[in-house]
Simulated assay, not measured.
Amino acid sequence: MSYGSFPPAPGGRRGGTLAVVLAALIPACFAGWLLWSSEGDGKGAGGSGPPTASSTSSPPPSSAAPTSGAPSSHAPSSAAPDALKGKVVVIDPGHNPNNRDHPAQIARRVDIGTNTKECDTTGTATNSGYAEASFTLDVARRARALLEAHGATVKFTQDGKTEFGPCVDERAEFGNKAHADAVVSVHADGAGPGERGFHIILPKGVHGGGADTSAITKPSRRLGERLLDSFTEETGSEPADYVGDGSGLNVRGDLGGLNLTTVPKVFIECGNMRDAKDAAHLTDAHWRERAARGIAQGITDFLHG
């Protein structure tokens, strides 16, 4: 069960609530009109004398009418604006839209503890040219707004304003220095056509060089499990069956962003940009809002145990 769920997108149950209110008010208004009409007819026929108490009192309000200040049906179960006060969340939007202009810089090898890897990459794109780096920034910004609305301090590793990167080791260090309570790196996959779904990448237990994940593998798994549940619920997407064991959780020890973290951290691959059906979701702004909600809710559930 989600803790402090975020309110659903507009257009959900508001229409149903209005219909119920109108159904309750129309009969009451009609009854009042009949009472007024009958009194008017009596006076017009020569009826005089002081009005009775029943003729001057207003009809009692309908029990179905909403009371002032009552929560609407679309209110969250726990909407306290400070629900995440004191929590630090780092969102790591994968890649960078400017990486493509700096091929030499992002190709530089960096130490990830167990071996070396490229500083960063350009990421993938849909067949129509929608870049992963644009997708990750959009979803990250939406998730940031949701988390900040609940009091969290949200920091980005990059917001598309740097020349390139940062490198994968720097992304990990950013979360470490922020003493983040949770870090989520947002991505989209570039698998083959026909391979669909999302998955969460968890840090493997590694110890070597500058890498030691022994203290964060268990909390990172809990974070990943919360994300898996909330993302499934919010987007309706299924866990990818082309990686790992089909559970939607995939453990890897070859990613610098995970190897070098000292705080709970996971990657989420929100879908496959190279599959036409997944790409239709990833390029849709409404679906990206649901994806952001799934990420924000998963982080919230993790932070509250």
Rank of each mutant, 00 (worst) to 15 (best):
A107L: 05
N96Y: 02
H74T: 12
N272Y: 11
D278K: 04
A125V: 05
D120Y: 00
N259W: 05
V266T: 10
G11E: 08
C167T: 09
R222K: 13
M273K: 04
G305K: 13
T126A: 05
D278R: 03
R171W: 01
T213D: 01
N176V: 10
R109Y: 05
G94F: 03
P97L: 08
D284E: 10
T262I: 08
R144L: 05
H150T: 14
T232R: 14
K177H: 11
R252A: 11
Q297H: 10
R252K: 14
W33A: 15
G47S: 11
E269S: 02
Q158E: 11
R13E: 08
D111R: 06
D138V: 06
G209L: 06
T217R: 12
A19L: 15
A9T: 05
H179P: 02
D41H: 08
H102Q: 12
I299M: 08
A64G: 15
E234I: 01
A178P: 00
S37K: 14
G151K: 11
A178F: 00
H179G: 09
F302P: 01
G12P: 00
D169Y: 02
G123R: 02
E238L: 15
V88D: 01
P10Q: 11
P27G: 12
Q105I: 04
G165P: 00
E173T: 09
T121F: 01
T261Y: 04
L227E: 00
G165C: 13
L35V: 11
T136L: 05
D101Q: 12
A9M: 11
G256Y: 02
R226H: 14
G11H: 13
S63Y: 06
P7F: 00
P81A: 06
R222W: 02
G192C: 03
G244W: 10
A279P: 03
E269W: 04
A215P: 06
A188I: 02
N127V: 04
S72K: 07
A276M: 06
R144W: 07
A31V: 14
M1T: 14
G209R: 04
K177C: 03
A188P: 00
G160L: 09
T217H: 02
G4F: 08
G47I: 09
S38M: 14
G190K: 11
G224R: 00
I106Y: 00
N250G: 01
S230G: 06
N127W: 12
V243D: 05
E170M: 06
N176G: 08
P27R: 11
D284S: 10
G160Y: 12
L202Q: 09
S220K: 00
A276Q: 12
R13V: 12
E238C: 10
L227G: 01
T300G: 04
H102Y: 12
P193I: 10
V183Y: 00
N259A: 07
A172F: 00
A79W: 08
A19N: 13
N99M: 08
F30S: 15
A9H: 09
